[in-house]
Design a protein around this nucleic acid. Structure first.
Length: 632
RNA sequence: GGACGCGUAGCUCAACUGGCAGAGCAUUCGACUCUUAAUCGACAGGUUGUAGGUUCGAUUCCUACCGCGUCCA
């Protein structure tokens, strides 16, 4: 528990203080436990409510018509001046100053006041007034000790800036973080006046996070330069996250969708391309997988006549960790019978717009790009303005200028032709004279080259599905096309963009386009340069579904452990008749990142996965001799 | 998995080209009845992530490992 001997000493010191506090309480007639860890304190006001209610009431008015109040909170500042002092109580993310005078609270309570440490919880009652500087303050008459902070708080001005510690000790981060901290990547002068100004408007909170110098700077110069990255306070991020969830439920509930919960532990981990976590049930002696998606269960429900369903819950994917990936993440999935992917495109635009308005009151967000060549750049995104491009159009739009003409329908039709197209594009690219080009341009050429090569590799490995007899080589180029799109276009999709019509090869659960059997009715939408959601017209032909699963099994045998597993029961469910259905999944963590201006998924997950903390120093010392012996 | 960066007091950070490990906050003691990063005075707090190496001398240079971060895959 203790990080150091110093901390242990601190702890003991505070134990002594707690004992002294107990003595004071007992002297006042309390039971020992009531004096140290009382069970309750009756408040008359919540701190945020007081700040809101009396924000406009003058000191004279408060004096003329005295307002009594009892509030409780955590001591976040403690300023003493002899026989009086000011302290700041924080509760529910808002801060109220209190004023304690020995003359008013008496000898014993003032003794208690002097024993307080930062982080302690107290309850106070008294009356409201305004100080000389005009700050709303509670003049304390009675002071009750509620709970002790046995460990010292971080630096009161800087707070916890160590990102690792913020994640590991979120319980500290939540009450310490005021978001004022500036992260590197631009000059401190600029970053002190961020374009983002986060205020707890909902709570009318006294904590204002606007840098004092902001108004003095030239706003035009600020807008021109990349503004610094100012974080929203941790607490506010998670308040917003709750609002996002609430808005989503409002949206679907009002449209007749039923919220359901489907298994998190599944005998077959299906519904997505990802490696699962494996677990074991002892009594039944069976392997189970933590779900990678709820998809197949939700569609079973549509078979069962639940025509509109949605689920908001965790998915688990045994994959890498990055600023956009956490092994467990929250996914919204919804399904609507008798709808197709065109209907879902319209619904998606309305949904995102609605959530933005509910949560932020505007569709405009300032967002620091979390990856790609424009990493860290603050961009303004309008979540109410959408563009739609087919995947093929997107490849054309972002096709490297120096690589000749983009692939045609003819090139897409088979892996052999696609390979040839990539090779000739690479040749064209290689012939560009790079002598007088800027470094930036040269880098973009390198990037283009690696993108084409990645697609080329996929085309080489592309399996033959045998689904399309017209192909001479028996191989599709679907996977390679998807890779090409991702490498060329994804990073540019900053404003909300729907990319529709995906290759069948990468879409084992989607319905094919009637006129183009190699392509499916599927779209993904991108914001801020990353994928936020994925939707399609659901494949509802059991025969076709069985063939696709079998093709995926072939993939798996070839070493692709992300290929979809066979789910015979799902095929059986389809055999009972799934109506034409549109379904969609939306990454809630990523959506929350956008709506809170967060650079990392870890900033919107309360307890992101980290390696276990290193051992306390004392344990380590004891271990040391053993390892030395082993080495000998 | 690869590249780069970081790791110094409880917290936030210094320590120039390798030359006595320092400051602020917090803590402890003292003064102060309108302060707000309160102020003033004093004390205390360190195996510089771990293990090696180079050197008269290592927080600094080198190697490996651990942890975290960022990017790429």
């Amino acid at each position: 528990m203790f990080a150091s001997e110093f901390e242990e000493e601190q702890y003991k010191l505070r134990q002594d203080k707690l004992k002294r506090i107990q003595e004071l309480g007992v002297e006042a007639g309390l039971q020992p436990l009531e004096a140290t860890y009382p069970n309750s304190f009756r408040t008359t006001h919540e701190v945020p409510a007081i700040l809101r209610e009396y924000a406009e009431v003058s000191g004279d008015a408060l004096e003329a018509d005295r307002v009594d109040a009892a509030v409780a909170g955590r001591v976040m500042a403690h300023r003493r001046q002899g026989k009086a002092g000011f302290a700041v109580l924080q509760a529910n993310g808002a801060r109220l100053q209190i004023y304690v005078r020995k003359d008013d609270v008496g000898e014993r309570a003032f003794e208690l006041y002097k024993l307080l440490d930062l982080g302690d919880h107290i309850g106070v009652s008294g009356y409201l007034f305004r100080t000389r500087t005009g700050e709303l303050t509670l003049h304390v008459r009675e002071l009750i000790f509620l709970a002790k902070a046995m460990l010292a708080l971080p630096d009161k001005f800087h707070g916890l800036t160590d990102i690792e510690l913020r994640y590991r000790q979120r319980y500290v981060d939540l009450f310490m973080d005021n978001g004022e901290e500036i992260e590197a990547s631009s000059s401190s002068e600029l970053s002190s006046a961020s374009a983002l100004s986060f205020r707890s408007e909902a709570e009318g909170c006294a904590v204002q996070f606007e840098p004092a110098s902001a108004s003095e700077k030239n706003p035009e110069a600020l807008a021109a330069a990349t503004p610094g990255l100012k974080r929203m306070p941790a607490r506010e991020v998670f308040v917003k996250r709750a609002q996002v969830l609430k808005a989503l439920r409002t949206f679907f509930d009002s449209r007749g969708y039923i919220e359901v919960e489907t298994p998190m532990m599944q005998p077959v981990a299906g519904g997505a391309a990802a490696r699962p976590f494996v677990t074991h049930h002892n009594t039944m002696d069976m392997e189970l997988y933590l779900r990678i998606a709820p998809e197949l269960y939700l569609k079973r429900l549509v078979v069962g006549g639940m025509d509109r369903v949605y689920e908001i819950n965790r998915n688990f994917r045994n994959e890498g960790i990055s600023t956009q990936h956490n092994p467990e993440f929250t996914m919204l999935e919804f399904y609507q019978a008798y709808a197709n992917y065109h209907d879902l495109m319209d619904l998606t635009e309305r949904l995102v717009t609605f959530v933005a308005m509910e949560v932020n009151g505007t569709t405009l967000i300032d967002f620091p790009l979390p990856k790609g060549p424009r990493l860290g750049e603050m961009v303004q995104i309008d979540l109410g303005k959408w563009e739609r491009l087919s995947m093929k159009e997107a490849i054309v739009k972002w096709w490297p200028r120096d690589a000749g003409s983009p692939p045609s329908e003819y090139d897409y039709a088979s892996a052999v032709r696609f390979t040839f197209a990539m090779e000739s594009a690479l040749d064209t690219l290689a012939r560009v004279n790079r002598g007088d080009l800027s470094r930036e341009y040269q880098l973009s050429l390198v990037d283009a080259e690696s993108s084409l090569r990645a697609a080329l590799n996929d085309a080489d490995e592309e399996p033959g599905y045998g689904l399309e007899p017209k192909r001479t080589d028996g191989k599709s180029a679907g996977k390679a096309i998807a890779t090409l799109f991702e490498r060329l276009a994804e990073q540019h999709l900053v404003q909300p963009t729907i990319i529709y019509d995906f290759p069948l090869a990468v879409s084992p659960l989607s319905k094919a386009k009637p006129d183009e059997p190699d392509w499916v009715e599927r779209f993904e939408f991108y914001i801020g340069g990353f994928e936020v959601g994925n939707a399609f017209s659901e494949l509802n032909d059991p025969e076709d579904q069985r063939r696709r699963f079998e093709a995926q099994l072939g993939e798996r045998e070839r070493g692709d452990d992300e290929a979809h597993q066979m789910d015979a029961d799902y095929v059986r469910a389809l055999a009972y008749g799934l109506p034409p259905t549109g379904g969609e999944g939306i990454g809630i963590d990523r959506l929350t990142m956008l709506l809170t201006g967060s650079r990392s998924i870890r900033d919107v997950i309360l307890f992101p996965l980290l390696r276990p903390a290193k051992k306390p120093a004392l344990e380590k010392l004891e271990d040391a001799p053993a390892t030395e012996l082993e080495q000998l």
